[in-house]
Amino acid sequence: MSGRPKQARSVARLAAVQALYQMEVSGVGVEAVIREFSEHRFDRGLEGEESAPLAAADEAFFADLVRGVVSTQREIDSAIVKRLATGWRLERLDSTVRAILRAGAFELARRDDVPVEVVIDEYVELAKSFFEGPEPGFVNGALDGVAQDVRS
């Protein structure tokens, strides 16, 4: 049973990254994207088959992540930019990397109930699921730096 809540949070993190990405590329609002995920994406089987549901997401955690990133985006972005190479702007990053960093930075800054190592490991694993190049290492370094800045 102890693996289930962890898995539910992992699924919520993936969904949050997807939702943040979707909001950025389509301009859809936060409540609309949360509603879409709740009504159409969670607890659905592959290709919509109800008989084989995917791992259940912690929907409250998902909604907290997405709303939190949006409501604190200026603060979150500032924390991330501080850890980018000199002269780099957040806009230069791939939009998926940006979504991963924003969700991870939000958890580090505002979710003291989640250990730093868990946050970094989870988002590095997410980066690995999207990218085969240097991005996971970049996410690791950036979030480690953000953690040093926002957690004592």
Rank of each mutant, 00 (worst) to 15 (best):
G27N: 13
G27F: 01
G27E: 10
G27W: 10
G29L: 01
V30E: 14
A32Y: 03
A32E: 15
A32L: 14
V33K: 11
V33H: 00
I34V: 14
I34T: 02
I34K: 11
R35N: 06
R35D: 14
R35I: 00
R35H: 12
F37G: 01
F37A: 09
S38K: 15
E39F: 11
E39Y: 09
E39A: 15
E39I: 09
H40D: 12
R41N: 08
F42K: 05
D43S: 13
D43A: 09
R44C: 12
R44I: 04
G45R: 03
G45E: 00
G45M: 04
L46W: 15
L46C: 02
L46T: 11
E47L: 12
E47C: 00
G48P: 03
E49F: 12
E50R: 11
E50S: 10
A52N: 15
P53C: 01
P53F: 01
L54C: 03
L54A: 12
A55Q: 11
A56G: 07
A56I: 02
A60M: 04
A63F: 05
A63V: 09
A63R: 06
A63S: 11
L65D: 04
L65E: 05
V66P: 09
V66I: 08
R67V: 00
R67F: 05
R67M: 04
G68T: 05
G68P: 03
G68Q: 05
G68V: 08
V70C: 05
S71D: 13
T72V: 00
T72K: 14
Q73M: 12
Q73F: 02
Q73Y: 07
R74C: 01
R74Q: 09
E75S: 12
I76S: 07
I76M: 04
D77A: 12
D77Y: 00
S78I: 01
S78P: 01
A79T: 07
A79S: 10
A79M: 11
A79V: 04
I80D: 08
I80Q: 01
I80L: 09
I80F: 06
K82I: 01
K82R: 15
R83V: 07
R83E: 15
R83N: 13
